[in-house]
Write a protein that binds this DNA or RNA. Structure first.
Lengths: 201, 201
DNA sequence: GTCTATAAATCGATAGAC
DNA sequence: GTCTATCGATTTATAGAC
């Protein structure tokens, strides 16, 4: 009864208790974000999720696989940054910073992003930036914006955004950590806009 | 014979083989830089230095103390950045970037700096930035330069420099990693100069 | 599915011989 | 000064009962 018809992609819950699985995943994200990869123990993740350590292995296999699973963002970054590329390129920096801060200020996805940031720093998984974040998130923005030499300019943008993210959200350095969103945008927009469309040597 | 006379401060080698001690320290720096704090084991450091693990404890005590010893830079950062504060504030950004890149491009001190950068990222030791690098290295520059609201502007400078350092030296992302020194300075100097002396919201 | 029990390896740190 | 030996605690991971 109430079985799904055979139309559309397979939706609905997978086998196993999805609550338990996602609880483990959420606990893993928090731990990876707070203690890094090496500083996270399977036992602590299990305890934080209220389950046994063996269950973590049952769902995710090794610690590495759990880490990769925890890095899967709950939202598609490409969808998130779509508003940044829609509009005149002259105000692209403000829109870009806006969607970025919106994502990072969302308490639902910030832990995942912090985990990604820390994972990038961990030598055990730092192909993540060069093979992941940069080509699938950052560079397509430059291409979509139609800017000049995107492969050259977007890393400049990334260098400033990563530094800001690090100081404001990961290391929580004042006064950046407590600075209002609009002020952050107004402060950094000229820098980003110059990297996007300004004169470069 | 040939013993030192009792004049002047105690110079010369301390007790113990200085080669062994510095070999341990060098191995510790490499390991901390490559594997982070939690990913570094005393045993691996000892093996890399060609000595026994117990000897590491003998010289440096606990793992934390070894970490702090490994972070001791071979040069005094304050001396290094002295040229950056001497001169007109209008070109401070160029001088600032110059001394920074000079230090990071020096193969003798880059491993230590990479270790510091990774140590900052490790949650187990991230008081290092807020209690170490920022107040003793970054902020004094702003004070010495006599800029307006240094506690507010220097974190902005730090956010861009850290992002640049991360992309160019730690993550080795192109084209920043291979960009000539002068071009890096020309690219980032306007940003830094604005954070130092420009108009902010 | 979930847990107990435990194997097997590795860790930091100490004591003590030489 | 340097190393052997080892303790005690933790870790990942597996085997198997319920």
């Amino acid at each position: 009864m109430a079985e799904r018809a055979s139309s559309g992609p397979p939706r609905g819950r997978r086998r196993g208790s999805p609550d338990t699985r996602s609880a483990i995943l959420a606990a893993a994200r928090s731990s990876f974000a707070e203690h890094g990869f090496a500083g996270t123990t399977i036992r602590a993740v299990a305890a934080s999720a209220g389950v046994d350590a063996a269950l973590v292995h049952h769902y995710f296999g090794t610690k590495d696989e759990l880490f990769l699973a925890a890095l899967e963002l709950p939202v598609d970054p490409r969808k998130l940054i779509a508003p940044a590329v829609a509009g005149p390129v002259e105000q692209a920096a403000e829109r870009f910073l806006g969607v970025f801060l919106t994502a990072w200020d969302d308490p639902d996805i910030r832990p995942s992003l912090v985990a990604v940031a820390r994972g990038i720093m961990d030598p055990a998984a730092n192909r993540l930036l060069s093979e992941g974040v940069l080509p699938v998130v950052i560079e397509p923005i430059g291409v979509a914006l139609g800017i000049d030499r995107p492969a050259e300019r977007m890393p400049l943008v990334a260098s400033q955004v990563i530094g800001l993210i690090l100081m404001r959200y990961v290391l929580v350095v004042e006064p950046l950590a407590s600075m209002p969103r609009d002020r952050v945008i107004a402060t950094y927009a000229p820098t980003i806009q110059r990297y996007l469309t300004g004169d470069l040597p």
